[in-house]
Amino acid sequence: MRYHRPTSIGDAVAIAQDASGTCRFLAGGTDVLVQLRADLVTPDDLIDIKHLPGMRDISRAGDGWRIGAAVTGAEMSENADLKREWPGVVEAMDLVGSTQIQGRATLTGNLCNASPAADSVPAMVAADATVTIAGPGGERTVPVAEIPVSPGRTSLQKGEVITAVNLPARAARSADAYLRFIPRTEMDIAVVGCGINLTLDGDTITHARASLGAVAPTVLLVDAIADALIGSTLGDAALDAAAAAASAACNPIDDKRGTIEFRTRVAGVLTKRAAKIAYERARGQS
């Protein structure tokens, strides 16, 4: 195993491109070290990027945000402006692991682990977030939803590394929320996750994005939930329609955490509950 500490993103990309065996980028390192011990993946090359310029910065990008690849969940929670504008994204990341993990775990790492149950991913998808990718061909920007392709696999090509997550400008009277279901109180992997992002005109929902996690091989952007919510003031009929749309979109697995039927039902319940939270938050925004 070789450990690399490149001095620029360009160098990091070059090392990864030249690597012959398994190569992993190290931001927080939490998932990489778990895989190592479990004998799942033993990388030949570890490329540390945490120290590179911009990796640890949360910064304004126009009216939106750029969150560097090595920014930790704890750092996101401490950023009051980010938390005010994207409470759903921040609370989703805050659910990734305990306090002891929050100081290391990153949004980008959670995305690249490509677990269908990753908490931050549905929130990012509902937020219409993108990622900036550095690679041999230069830089490109891709919607978050296009990164995971199947459990444990991403669409990133050899030599490519995500350098930042980008959140769009926050519209007036809009807000997001994320809820998940776990069987115990703390520290667990989502059985179902749901991200909702709403924009209102007065009390009427004009724009909506909704996503579900852990109910399909990859995160789902569910337009049917959004359609059920748009034009409504979140009355019971809209909520029921959204819940039905959520359940209809599910294609989960049966496992010890929950049966197909259970996940399908819980997706509906969480969609309602998350929509209510996002709606109340949006109404509170000027």
């Binding site: 070290l33 778990v34 570890l46 002891q100």
Partner: peptide, 24 residues
């Protein structure tokens, strides 16, 4: 556990609690 699940290895790094098993 060496997987960040149990927290027994918690130490402070610059004052912040981390699982030492998941810290390179």
């Amino acid at each position: 556990c060496d997987a960040g699940d149990c927290g027994a290895c918690t130490v402070l790094v610059d004052g912040d609690p981390v699982c030492a098993c998941l810290t390179p």
